[in-house]
Amino acid sequence: MEYIKHHAMINEMFYTIGSAMISTMNLFVKPDDHLILFNSFGGKKYDDSPKAIYEFMKNDSRFAEYRLVWAFHEPEKHPEVIDKIKTDNFNYFLTALKARVWITNSSIQRGLHFCGKHTYRFNSWHGTPMKQMGRDKKNTENAPRYRANSDDVMLAQSKYEIEKMSEARQIPRERFKMFGLPRNDELLGVTKEKVRMIRNMLEIPDCKKVILYAPTFREYMLDDLSQCTLSVPIDFQSWHEILGDQFIVLFRAHYEVAKHTELPKDGNWLDVSTYPHLNELMMAADILVSDYSSIFFDYSITEKPMFHFAYDYDEYNRKRGLYFDIRKELSGACVSDELARLIATMDFENEVAKCKAFRDKYVEAYGTATQQSVEWIAKQLNL
């Protein structure tokens, strides 16, 4: 799928022929009014807002007679889910066509265009956009053409998000529900015991200050297999000297990145790129460092310091495109050593105030998104 996604001509052929085949198949499929299909990031994970909605539904008696099915690329890696199927085969597309509801944070359609006869499409999406998306996105010459979104509902955290998403993804504004993101509900009211439990699992001593470094991917940086790579200009030894042993850095590469910077083999840097729950990393962290990732919007709910490391801002903005300049919103630096010194000497109260101002500007709805989402879906099903 990665090769198809990054090559325009092949993508167009796949889209046209595949969509026609699935639509023809749909003529002979009988809908199942008690089937709900979930996926997260197309089938890569069991997490994010679809997981929050799923776990709420499992304990909601109104959905007791519904079959709640998850689709994964590798179902065997998700023993926590009983009813699951594999993506990208005949059974997957058959199940998608039968389903009464799709619940996703990206897409159920796997790069094609189809929908079941009675399917209600509920999309939480996976973050407020800082980088340009959809038809706003700056594409390379070989990039596939953009196709408009066709979901029945798209969630949002703010009016800013609705404005950007409606234009970029060509979604009528009335389809947006400003509930917030269900995945973020648990970021409120986190107890000290919960934080201690997570840090214990990560083997982080209580005396350490935790920095979560979570950069986004550069889709224009590809290897020979058309997979995204990442190499960040951090002088690890210098960071150690400036920050000392009181800090530990959790490095979280974006899920799109197959290969990334090799971290030093010491106790001050920990690669948590495969850790299953990003929210737990945000809970465990005292400080966030990122670049152009939507994690800033989510983390702002925690009211903890955030810093930008926008070392390639001009290149990223030129090749990918951004809606605003994060350097004007938060403290940060474009050089590794400067960032480390800024963190080491920060005015904590001032940085928390900047975090709250960022949240107030870009995240208007949060805290009850899961319940509101389930209530809305139940209403559509007349439950």
Rank of each mutant, 00 (worst) to 15 (best):
E12S: 15
M9A: 14
Q227S: 14
R320C: 10
Y362S: 04
A168M: 06
D32M: 06
G18E: 03
T24K: 05
K354L: 10
A71I: 04
K131C: 10
F93R: 04
D83V: 11
F56P: 00
W239H: 00
N11G: 14
G332K: 08
F41H: 14
S226K: 15
D152G: 11
S40N: 06
E55F: 05
T104R: 04
G267C: 10
Q237Y: 10
N350Y: 12
E167C: 12
K86I: 03
D325T: 02
S273V: 07
D185A: 01
I17H: 01
Y275C: 06
C228F: 06
M25K: 12
S293W: 09
N59Q: 15
R183F: 02
T140N: 10
D47Q: 10
P205A: 06
S238M: 09
E163R: 13
S23Q: 15
M165P: 00
S106L: 11
K44C: 01
D312S: 04
R175Q: 12
I162A: 03
D298M: 02
M221D: 13
F307V: 00
A168G: 07
S61G: 06
W376A: 08
L281G: 08
R62T: 03
L112F: 08
Y146N: 12
A20R: 12
I326P: 00
F309W: 01
I301Q: 08
F114Q: 09
P233N: 02
N11S: 15
V210T: 01
Q170K: 08
R196H: 10
M201C: 11
T216I: 07
N91Y: 14
E74Q: 11
D47E: 11
N317G: 09
F307T: 01
L225G: 10
A333V: 04
C115G: 12
L383W: 07
H308E: 02
D47N: 14
M25W: 11
L381V: 08
I198Y: 00
D136S: 11
P172D: 14
H113G: 06
L97N: 07
S300Y: 02
Q246L: 05
E338L: 00
Y120G: 01
D88K: 12
L278H: 12
E74A: 07
E364V: 08
L187C: 04
H78W: 11
T95A: 14
D60A: 06
S150P: 03
M306P: 01
S331G: 04
S150M: 13
